[in-house]
Deep mutational scan, measured.
Amino acid sequence: NKASVVANQLIPINTALTLIMMKAEVVTPMGIPAEEIPKLVGMQVNRAVPLGTTLMPDKVKNYE
């Protein structure tokens, strides 16, 4: 099972992601793969992401 990116804290809307905000966890359904964490640093979320929520591609601005 592959790990996904999960919010390590509440991430407010329009916040630029940092390493400390994210952790890798095996979750269902799968979100953004954990190996993409370095790519996500500096990207902004387009909505608030509660603690423990899986980061889905549609929650990150300009994620492809």
Rank of each mutant, 00 (worst) to 15 (best):
N1S: 13
N1P: 14
K2I: 14
K2H: 14
K2V: 14
K2A: 13
A3Q: 10
A3H: 09
A3V: 05
A3T: 06
A3I: 04
S4V: 00
S4A: 04
S4F: 03
S4E: 01
S4T: 05
V5I: 14
V5H: 05
V5C: 07
V5R: 01
V5Q: 03
V5D: 01
V6Q: 00
V6G: 02
V6C: 07
V6I: 12
V6K: 02
V6R: 00
V6F: 01
V6S: 04
V6W: 00
A7E: 02
A7K: 05
A7M: 04
A7P: 00
A7Q: 01
A7H: 03
A7R: 00
N8D: 07
N8F: 06
N8V: 11
N8R: 14
N8Q: 11
N8Y: 05
N8S: 14
Q9I: 11
Q9F: 08
Q9P: 02
Q9V: 14
Q9A: 09
L10T: 13
L10E: 13
L10I: 07
L10M: 14
L10Y: 15
I11S: 03
I11K: 01
I11G: 01
I11F: 03
I11D: 03
I11V: 02
I11M: 04
P12E: 09
P12I: 07
P12Q: 08
P12S: 06
P12Y: 07
P12H: 07
P12M: 07
P12K: 08
I13R: 12
I13W: 05
I13K: 14
I13M: 14
N14F: 11
N14R: 01
N14D: 13
N14P: 00
N14H: 13
N14L: 09
N14Q: 00
N14E: 08
N14V: 05
T15M: 08
T15K: 05
T15G: 05
T15Q: 08
A16S: 12
A16P: 13
A16D: 10
A16W: 13
L17G: 05
T18W: 04
T18Q: 10
T18P: 01
T18H: 06
T18C: 09
T18I: 08
T18A: 09
T18V: 08
T18K: 10
L19E: 10
L19W: 11
L19A: 10
L19T: 09
L19I: 10
L19F: 12
L19P: 09
I20Y: 13
I20W: 11
I20S: 13
I20M: 14
I20Q: 14
I20E: 14
I20G: 13
M21P: 06
M21H: 08
M21A: 06
M21F: 05
M21K: 03
M21G: 06
M22S: 04
M22F: 06
M22Q: 03
M22K: 00
M22G: 07
M22H: 02
K23F: 08
K23S: 09
K23N: 08
K23E: 08
K23M: 08
K23G: 09
K23A: 09
K23R: 15
K23T: 10
A24W: 07
A24P: 10
A24S: 12
E25R: 12
E25S: 11
E25H: 09
E25K: 13
E25G: 10
E25Y: 09
E25D: 11
E25T: 08
E25C: 15
E25Q: 14
V26Q: 09
V26C: 13
V26G: 04
V26Y: 13
V26R: 10
V27I: 04
V27Y: 05
V27W: 04
V27D: 01
T28N: 12
T28C: 15
T28Q: 13
T28I: 12
T28W: 13
T28E: 14
P29D: 06
P29Q: 06
P29E: 05
P29C: 09
P29L: 07
M30T: 10
M30A: 13
M30S: 12
M30V: 12
M30K: 12
G31S: 02
G31K: 02
G31A: 01
G31D: 03
G31Y: 03
G31H: 01
G31N: 02
G31Q: 04
G31F: 04
I32V: 03
I32F: 05
I32W: 03
I32R: 03
I32M: 04
I32A: 02
I32Y: 03
I32Q: 01
P33H: 06
P33K: 07
P33L: 10
P33V: 03
P33S: 10
P33C: 12
P33G: 07
A34W: 07
A34D: 03
A34L: 05
A34K: 00
A34T: 04
E35L: 11
E35N: 12
E35D: 12
E35P: 07
E35G: 11
E35M: 11
E35S: 13
E36Y: 11
E36D: 12
E36A: 10
E36W: 10
I37A: 04
I37T: 01
I37S: 03
I37F: 03
I37N: 04
P38Q: 09
P38H: 11
P38F: 10
P38D: 09
P38K: 09
P38N: 10
P38R: 09
K39H: 13
K39R: 14
K39G: 09
K39V: 11
K39L: 12
K39P: 01
L40T: 03
L40R: 00
L40M: 03
L40Y: 01
L40F: 02
V41I: 12
V41S: 00
V41H: 02
V41K: 00
V41E: 04
V41L: 09
V41A: 03
V41F: 00
V41Q: 03
G42Q: 00
G42D: 04
G42N: 05
G42W: 03
G42K: 00
G42T: 00
G42H: 02
M43Y: 10
M43D: 03
M43W: 00
M43F: 10
M43P: 00
M43E: 04
M43L: 11
M43Q: 05
Q44W: 09
Q44A: 08
Q44Y: 15
Q44L: 11
Q44N: 05
Q44F: 14
Q44K: 11
Q44C: 14
V45E: 06
V45K: 02
V45A: 01
V45D: 06
V45I: 05
V45M: 01
V45P: 06
N46Q: 08
N46Y: 08
N46P: 03
N46K: 11
N46G: 06
N46I: 14
R47H: 14
R47D: 15
R47P: 06
R47L: 10
R47S: 15
R47V: 15
R47Y: 12
A48E: 15
A48F: 08
A48K: 09
A48C: 13
A48V: 12
A48W: 10
V49S: 02
V49I: 15
V49T: 05
V49Y: 06
V49H: 07
V49W: 04
V49A: 03
V49P: 04
V49K: 04
P50A: 11
P50S: 08
P50E: 11
P50I: 08
L51F: 14
L51S: 14
L51N: 13
L51M: 15
L51W: 10
L51T: 11
L51I: 13
L51V: 12
G52F: 04
G52M: 02
G52Y: 04
G52I: 03
G52C: 06
G52A: 01
G52S: 03
T53E: 15
T53K: 08
T53N: 08
T53Q: 14
T53W: 09
T53R: 05
T54Q: 00
T54W: 00
T54A: 07
T54V: 10
T54K: 01
L55C: 06
L55N: 01
L55P: 02
L55D: 04
L55Q: 03
L55Y: 00
M56Y: 09
M56N: 06
M56A: 06
M56D: 07
M56S: 14
M56V: 06
M56G: 07
M56E: 05
M56W: 06
M56F: 12
P57R: 06
P57W: 14
P57N: 00
P57C: 05
P57G: 06
P57Q: 03
P57E: 04
P57H: 05
D58Q: 07
D58P: 04
D58V: 04
D58S: 10
D58A: 07
D58R: 01
D58H: 11
D58K: 03
K59H: 15
K59I: 15
K59S: 15
V60T: 00
V60K: 02
V60S: 04
V60I: 14
V60C: 04
V60M: 05
V60H: 02
K61S: 08
K61L: 11
K61D: 09
N62M: 09
N62E: 09
N62Q: 08
N62L: 07
N62Y: 11
N62C: 13
N62H: 11
N62V: 01
N62T: 05
N62F: 11
Y63P: 06
Y63F: 07
Y63I: 05
Y63V: 04
Y63T: 04
Y63R: 02
Y63M: 02
Y63C: 05
E64Q: 14
E64Y: 12
E64W: 12
E64M: 13
E64L: 14
E64K: 13
